[in-house]
Design a protein around this nucleic acid. Structure first.
Lengths: 201, 201
DNA sequence: CTCAAAACAGGATGATCATCCTGTTTATAA
DNA sequence: TTATAAACAGGATGATCATCCTGTTTTGAG
């Protein structure tokens, strides 16, 4: 009689989020069935229902914990650590492009993928996704302001720079996903680097 | 005994595409059930199956006929008619922003909406969507080349300009959809207009 | 130790969905 | 007119899906 079951609520919750994040990115929210997720995570219906009563609750957790963390890791932290806004943008674009080229296929931007499918589906989804976009732009705008305090970027509007950078990245990832070709990212970066390049007068 | 049924295959096909295009944009492909579409179009299962044997066939028709036409109408035709590439881009951005502000909500870019949900779902979807993106960029690049033949845009790389413009628009629409606020479109346009603004040396 | 709550198991359920099938009606060509 | 295919009707079907429910095991507080 092997009666050994170790309760590990945190670990089980993490495994569910792992497979949900992966499946939502690979197939989307609606195309991911809870049955598939349960099989992939190796858990039962009771356990899944215990941690996430509804599919919506699961998706909200993926957005707030995983998608936000992905943006934090890919964009926010590198930008804060960068010597300047422009150098940060360049290094993030190139890092992502290089990573995509190495792995050979393009899954798209985690935030954009879910934003397109879920923004209109539910107000809770929409506001969670919009908040991540806003924080992303905020970080970029703050970096421009820091550059300006250091004497650079005169004449660059922080919010405008942030909006264009995030838009260009998101759109470039959209095209890269559709074309399954990451090179468009580098093309867009080259264009971005020619925005307001004139020195302060 | 009113026995009057007028066969109108073209009209019926058009009505199906009308409701499918609308529903795919509003709720997405997977969240649109054929039952809902049949009810909205006022047709029977037999008729739907006759014109579109599978849901995939219906979506492919929506992409190739409706989404491509939307890009043609919104971007390609106005760009060809514009006096210059930059003026064309400006007028399209402003026209879309104004239209979105008037209708009060943002559904997103038809191409991007389906591209995100379907690019990884099926190779046929992906290539149809990628072709539309490519044609869009081609039109923009051709316009820059025309400007160059007319003596302007020296130093502007046509493909780079096209890629950044499409990316910025797509990404701006993504954010506008998530935020339900079209103003970010104008912000991105202002940024775009500061790309390579220096005169030829 | 006791016991209540949390964690997990596993199946039931009702709804929904895409597809298919058998007919019937309409249009077209010979 | 007649034959043939296209156009359309309407229901059947089997699969799938999210949620819920009843029960069992584990954990920790008192």
């Amino acid at each position: 009689m092997r009666k050994k079951r170790t309760n590990d609520p945190e670990g089980m919750r993490r495994r569910v989020l792992d497979v949900a994040e992966d499946s939502f990115q690979a197939h989307g929210y609606h195309a991911s069935s809870l049955g598939d997720l349960m099989a992939a995570a190796g858990i039962t219906g009771g356990a899944l229902h215990h941690h996430f009563p509804t599919k919506k609750a699961l998706a909200l957790a993926v957005i707030e914990e995983r998608v936000a963390a992905a943006v934090e890791e890919t964009w926010i932290a590198p930008m804060r650590a960068a010597p300047s806004a422009r150098e940060g943008v360049r290094s993030v674009f190139e890092a992502v492009a290089t990573e995509l080229e190495q792995q050979g296929f393009v899954r798209g931007c985690p935030l954009n993928n879910l934003a397109h499918e879920l923004s209109l589906a539910d107000p809770d989804f929409r506001s969670a996704l919009a908040d991540i976009f806003a924080g992303w732009r905020q970080t970029l705008a703050d970096k421009i302001r820091a550059d300006q305090l250091a004497g650079g970027e005169a004449g660059t509007d922080p919010e405008r720079f942030a909006a264009l950078t995030v838009a260009a990245y998101s759109g470039a990832m959209s095209m890269a996903k559709a074309a399954q070709d990451a090179s468009i990212l580098r093309q867009c970066l080259e264009g971005l680097e020619r925005v307001e390049p004139r020195p302060p007068t």
